[in-house]
Write a protein that binds this DNA or RNA. Structure first.
Lengths: 121, 121
DNA sequence: GCAACATATGAACAGTTGCTCACATATTCA
DNA sequence: TGAATATGTGAGCAACTGTTCATATGTTGC
């Protein structure tokens, strides 16, 4: 295949569609924004975390409650809650030994709804 | 730690919060639904696929156009388009040698918007 | 202080993912 | 038919992910 730039192989479509590609390129958000968006959806891309978020939408719960609800170990839940907290999707408050987690974002429900709308097509 | 059922360790919170856990459990969607939801978001959880979807929101494009736009190999893009198509997020039409891809879902924009809303907090 | 409890965390391990590379398939045109 | 073009795909691989296990941290009540 013909080399048309210094790094990657190209096809002739690029030349034909050059204006379209340039237009789309100019409208793309910043690389960093798209990366952050992917990182956010990556957090949603695990069924354990989805379950935790869905549960916390119903009620504030402590770590072992969630573990019992999902029939998983406390350790596994704790690890996932850490991921969710880093993504600023959940927050927690401490009451003695017990740490209660709750949702920290009003978009979670909307994101779930849109996702479900796609699945139920 | 005390064994309180046949499979997993439990804490005493479960007993105290038993009613809350049961209430939440009764309100949870089907296991399968939550799994499918996670699978969908997993598709959104990669910056290459996010970029492709964002690009296709602007214009229908062929494989090599997308490859040129994102400065990636045709093969890498083709692999990812396959994933997006299996998730029913994109569709394609063939015109001679060239295969044009476009969005196949009206929820993509809404999902992106909600994701961005969370990021820009 | 110490025993019991609730949670957090690091290491390890198996399973998954996204890219590259080589090659297959499909279409056009001379 | 055969060369050129555009796309699809399987194998291989380095990197990442989610769980388990052992253990650490922090809190309560005696």
């Amino acid at each position: 295949m013909v080399k048309k730039n210094d790094s990657l192989e190209r096809c002739f479509c690029d030349v034909i569609h050059e204006d379209v590609v340039r237009k789309v390129k100019s409208k793309m958000p910043k690389e960093e924004t798209l990366y952050d968006l992917a990182e956010l959806f990556k957090v949603f891309g695990d069924s354990t975390r989805i379950k935790i978020l869905w549960a916390l939408e119903e009620a504030e719960m402590c770590v072992c409650d969630i573990a019992a609800l999902l029939n998983m170990t406390q350790s596994a839940i704790s690890h996932q809650l850490r991921v969710l907290k880093q993504a600023k999707l959940v927050k927690n408050r401490k009451e003695g030994k017990v740490v209660y987690y709750s949702l920290d974002d009003e978009h979670v429900r909307a994101i779930f709804q849109q996702g479900l709308a796609h699945i139920n097509e």
